[in-house]
């Protein structure tokens, strides 16, 4: 049973992954809509980032996490190196939690 669940999940997920890659060449898209593909990916990634920053299990994630992400965003805005952005975001959230902020 367990192995069936894992294989079904793995096969289905790989199917989604490979389908888009292989479809890209066969799909006859009008020229104007082709440039929407990266825009669509950006919308999905932005939605992922926003929901991951703000929500947890369908509710608000608490203040510590969005505060850390906000620090990361400000640093990204100021064109800080990527490593610093990631470390500062995690560090801020960790520090706030250490201080008792949820």
């Amino acid at each position: 049973m367990l192995i069936a669940v894992i294989l079904a999940l793995a096969t289905g997920t790989y199917g989604f992954r490979v389908a888009g890659v292989l479809l890209r060449d066969r799909l006859e898209l009008p020229e104007w809509s082709r440039h929407l593909l990266p825009v669509a990916a950006a919308a999905l990634l932005a939605a992922l980032a926003a929901t991951a920053a703000l929500t947890e299990a369908g509710g608000f994630a608490g203040y510590a996490r969005p505060a850390g992400v906000l620090v990361g965003l400000v640093l990204a805005w100021r064109r800080a190196p990527f490593v610093l952005i990631v470390v500062a975001a995690a560090g801020t959230t960790a520090l706030l939690r250490l201080l008792g902020v949820a």
Partner: peptide, 25 residues
Amino acid sequence: ALGLDAAFPAGLAALLLPGLRDRET
């Protein structure tokens, strides 16, 4: 406790940000 749940959205946002200079995106 390490704040890693903030690391992933911050990283994604940082990678996305330059692309957002395009108004439509």
